[in-house]
Design a protein around this nucleic acid. Sequence first.
DNA 1: AGGACTTTGTGAACGGGAGAACAAACTGAG
DNA 2: CTCAGTTTGTTCTCCCGTTCACAAAGTCCT
Lengths: 231, 231
Amino acid sequence: MAPLPGWKVGLVSARTADSARDIPEATVARLPVYLRALTTLVDNGTATCSSEELAAAAGVNSAKLRKDLSYLGSYGTRGVGYDVDYLRYQIAREIGVTQDWPVVIVGIGNLGHALANFSGFRSRGFRVVALLDADPDRRGERVAGIDVRDFADLEPIVREHGVAIGVIATPASAAQDVADQMVEAGIRSILNFAPIVISVPDGVDVRKVDLSIELQILAYHEQRKQSEATA
Amino acid sequence: MAPLPGWKVGLVSARTADSARDIPEATVARLPVYLRALTTLVDNGTATCSSEELAAAAGVNSAKLRKDLSYLGSYGTRGVGYDVDYLRYQIAREIGVTQDWPVVIVGIGNLGHALANFSGFRSRGFRVVALLDADPDRRGERVAGIDVRDFADLEPIVREHGVAIGVIATPASAAQDVADQMVEAGIRSILNFAPIVISVPDGVDVRKVDLSIELQILAYHEQRKQSEATA
DNA sequence: AGGACTTTGTGAACGGGAGAACAAACTGAG
DNA sequence: CTCAGTTTGTTCTCCCGTTCACAAAGTCCT
Ligand SMILES: NC(=O)c1ccc[n+]([C@@H]2O[C@H](COP(=O)([O-])OP(=O)(O)OC[C@H]3O[C@@H](n4cnc5c(N)ncnc54)[C@H](O)[C@@H]3O)[C@@H](O)[C@H]2O)c1
Ligand SMILES: NC(=O)c1ccc[n+]([C@@H]2O[C@H](COP(=O)([O-])OP(=O)(O)OC[C@H]3O[C@@H](n4cnc5c(N)ncnc54)[C@H](O)[C@@H]3O)[C@@H](O)[C@H]2O)c1
């Protein structure tokens, strides 16, 4: 009955029980990067790695990595490093991708097709359960083995599969309406590819991906580099 | 010769000359969002807007918006607001999208096709000048009116068009190699869609877009919402 | 067993960004 | 011209996130 180990285990299991109180948002955003790096290491047959190695694979500072991991618990061994497979499981559990999340994609145009065909969904904790489009001409089309269905069927599909996450790949003009109906149907997490700010009630999370914004940020820095080179 | 107007113009042109010294990175990342919102307002025929209105359209706090804009100069009028078209031009100039940037896309698979067909490039300051793929079967294929060419042609294309920005849409296994060759060819800004951290020399900017990471961040919050609901 | 060595986990200092609050500056009515 | 009303630009404070630096905790060799 050594006091320290007992206390430590108690603390760890306490954290596990109420699933880690408050993880900073910046850390949450990096956990998937660590998970990806660890999966690569597992595939390479690496059994153990140091914070330095993992940090390099994830493209971050090793001190930041260690601090991030410390929010989850003490999963490393001092003098040794981390058990790759064990740590990978712990992070996957923390993120919540030990089981697959059902996802619907709305707007099966250029981008929607690419998303539907994207094989990385399944391996990373997600399962596309429906493809929806408002255009009747899209109906009946099969994309990646899934029938494109009427957007009006959203609500029963969400109910049937317990869908919590929706992806918007419609034109910007339709995005707010699609989001409203997703919320109405019970979806509380939305990934929006349309270049517009959509507003949702409290309790609903929206993340956006905007290609043009990323390019424009690059353009800004590129412009500065070029004007410096001229000067 | 009123002293105040003269002084103000002097200050603005001074800032314009050395192109706004140091704009915080967080602000740079929001300028494209403001630009997008302003373009929408212009399309709606709005001539003037307050920081409150623009902030709402951009999904940010109005104090933050005003502070961001203050880094560019004093483009508003107290008691009135901002001239939408004028401010839009100033932000576009600051970002560097008053002319089009030539862009190459490498990896014309599912995602590459969608990107090539994306019409928003042109209107937002970018022009796709080449589509490249290593697969000989892709050669000769025409996507969005552009011939898919051999990845080996990268260097002459970059030189001919003065390409500064490259987009990687290949599998992760090829991404580092593609990035190396882009840098070799003279590209100094890269947008990476492959789920891997790529390393580049100093002076080269990389931004990444990773769908799985975004979904996993949503999954984390969704998991917490659901476990809270249960408790 | 003991001591040198390695690596984690964390306390503390630091820097940057977010937001509240207000003075300065402009408009327009009387 | 003056004054009330409006909205910007900026200062100030607080908080979050990053990074340094080191004690604690383990391994491994002798
Ligand atoms: N294609 C890209 O690479 C790319 C890149 C960045 C951003 N985007 C954005 O992603 C979105 C989709 O782009 P795209 O190129 O696939 O456009 P698209 O026009 O090819 O496809 C849009 C699809 O949405 C469907 N749709 C329209 N209104 C709908 C509604 N109310 N409900 C359900 N479905 C509806 C249309 O029928 C169409 O099939 C756009 O907002 C675009 O700006 C696309
Ligand atoms: N499809 C999506 O919606 C989606 C979403 C998120 C991320 N991604 C990522 O984007 C990347 C592309 O996805 P995809 O679905 O289009 O894959 P894909 O397999 O359909 O296309 C990849 C293309 O890259 C080409 N390629 C391979 N090696 C190359 C090389 N060395 N040089 C030039 N070209 C090369 C292939 O010939 C192929 O045409 C992947 O890394 C994927 O993980 C895709």
